[in-house]
Design a protein around this nucleic acid. Structure first.
Lengths: 339, 339
DNA sequence: TCCTTTTGAGTTATCGATAACAAAAAGTCG
DNA sequence: CGACTTTTTGTTATCGATAACTCAAAAGGA
């Protein structure tokens, strides 16, 4: 039985007030720093709170004031270089302002996202940051649109009609790699991806990539597996099959850096020379981009800054201020090492 | 002004009840599936809730029932392969049970952790998972110990007297690498690290590593910078200085994999042959361990499983059940590729 | 000195749910 | 058919804080 939990009474504001010999209201005012309270009572209340190790009950506080300090963040997965950085950017801005982030993981699953959204909303967040680029349920969309708190969408360049949208251009990212391949004189390019039906941003990169190639008359060998995870291991597997069928592929674009690294690793082990024999490109995904040499070409996006910007946008919106977000989350080509 | 926020009234249980023509209590019971309610009323209430897109207010619910569904997790940083995995393990177990995780980042900072702990407690979590291996303030320790909810510590093998402790042996990890180096016939080993005063687990790995080496008469070139971040870039910088002073180092142990990769990368660029000329080892930190070939030797820990186990321990404790956690979060040596 | 203003502290109602118990409706049975 | 269950529904109090207001005391002004 969990009596051990319930019989230990937490100390409440009433206890603090009693010890300081004042009313609950006075104690509340002192601890929040509102109203005008004499220096002595203030000190008495503070001392009482300290002595009792008082920890306010935010559930009660928020319920009463109808204002929470929670910013809900919904994203596919925290366990991912991209969104890990984004979250850390959000936190960096939000925490010093006294807000807390509450994170829900959707794992690119529509139904799960639906559930998560409902759950985080039930905590009455003051604001919300949702990741786009996933097929959102009608129900969830409606709920978000009608919910009375500011909602900022990130990651997906396609505005979904919330209170703000902060994202890089995925189409640009795809085009950039295509352009890069073309400049290198690539003849037989290939693409590998996974779960493209779920990750709409990745699909957009691929589409733009393909379009540019087709524009110059290059045919793309396109290989996507809807059931594999978007991870390094899948990269190895897919490239392996691909090279068996088309040993003369000379350029490979991957859904993300994780898959690209997996592919790179397999190619290396199988004796293919990268980038001379086959060029490999990915998308913005490891935390090593700038400090570890790889032969991988990638497109970089300032994820931390993007998170920060989203956080600033939410805070501004919560406070009813106007906010002009940076428009320049440009995708930048980062060439791999050749040595 | 943020009237747009407040004037839109959220639909409450009362609205649902009214629409279904029953009392709030009945509606509440239906939606929570408690008590006995006739099939018809149940359906009416459900329909009303659906029609109104009712989202319960969990703040109110938890306050009233004195029971929250929040599990608080305090860790150094989410934006880190290690803890990202741990969190995802925790989530995997906890979410299907109807709980939510709330994450606080301490960034290895004692004061910040102190503040974070107080903050997460203010949300009245049903249980808590804290990461050890950081110097915790006296105040925070007291608070945790007296707080009436189960608290599980992870990561640090040193039991701190909470309701459970789930961790690998960092000392073993350090010893393993030392042993490995010795078996390879290393003559001049070195160590690089950062922020060791904050990351006590890393310090323990280093200590054990050093001890084994000393035991066989090997002297360690020990290089730690307290001000650098524990990241790849620091690895590059530190090894660079180190090789200048001691060009004959033939083995390098790094605080973690990120730093090791940084070092590896610099060594490679500078023309040192790894592992023939110099062996490089790290600790459990990239998400690529099993799928990307590197020349890096590392010690692997099942982070996802560790998170899951911690989550199971908290849930069990919340429910007042006894729980015998796995004791076998052993550190495993993963040898780097040599080709 | 008396009246007005300012300041400090307290009162009451409320936020949106649930616990605990009470009442009403429906079902049982001799 | 009425007393007795059992099932279903409703009432009241409460969780721990804050909003909005009131009231008393102190300060200021003429």
């Amino acid at each position: 039985m969990d009596q051990s939990i319930s019989d230990l009474k937490r100390t409440t504001l009433a206890d603090v007030a009693a010890r300081a010999g004042v009313s609950k209201m006075t104690a509340s005012k002192v601890l929040r720093g509102t109203g005008s309270i004499s220096a002595q009572t203030r000190e008495r209340v503070r001392a009482a709170a300290r002595d009792l190790s008082y920890v306010p009950n935010r559930l009660a506080g928020s319920l009463s004031s109808n204002r929470s300090h929670i910013v809900a963040v919904v994203l596919p997965s925290i366990n991912d270089a991209v969104f890990g950085d984004v979250v850390s950017g959000i936190n960096a801005v939000i925490r010093p302002e006294g807000y807390l982030t509450f994170i829900g993981e959707s794992h690119f699953d529509t139904d799960l996202e639906d559930e998560i959204i409902q759950t985080v909303l039930s905590l009455q967040p003051a604001g919300m940051i949702v990741t786009g680029g996933i097929r959102r349920s009608e129900r969830a969309s409606q709920l978000l649109k009608s919910w009375p708190c500011p909602i900022i969408q990130i990651w997906d360049e396609q505005d979904a009609g919330y209170d703000g949208n902060i994202a890089p251009s995925h189409a640009d990212a795809g085009r950039m790699i295509a352009q890069h391949f073309i400049e290198k004189g690539v003849r037989k390019p290939a693409y590998i991806g996974a779960e493209l039906k779920k990750d709409l941003c990745a699909a957009r990169r691929r589409e733009a990539f393909k379009e540019v190639l087709t524009g110059v008359g290059l045919e793309l060998i396109d290989c996507t597996d809807e059931d594999m995870p978007r991870q390094a291991g899948s990269g190895s597997k897919l490239i392996q099959d691909l090279m068996r069928q088309h040993p003369d592929i000379d350029a490979l674009y991957c859904l993300n850096d994780a898959m690209a690294l997996g592919a790179l690793s397999w190619l290396h082990g199988a004796g293919f020379a990268v980038p001379d024999q086959i060029a490999v490109a990915g998308f913005n995904g490891t935390s090593f981009e700038h400090s570890v040499r790889t032969r991988l070409t990638t497109v970089h996006i300032e994820r931390h800054a993007l998170g920060q910007e989203a956080a600033r946008a939410v805070l501004a919106s919560i406070r009813g201020e106007v906010f002009a977000p940076r428009e320049d989350f440009v995708a930048t080509l980062v060439q791999g090492n050749t040595t």
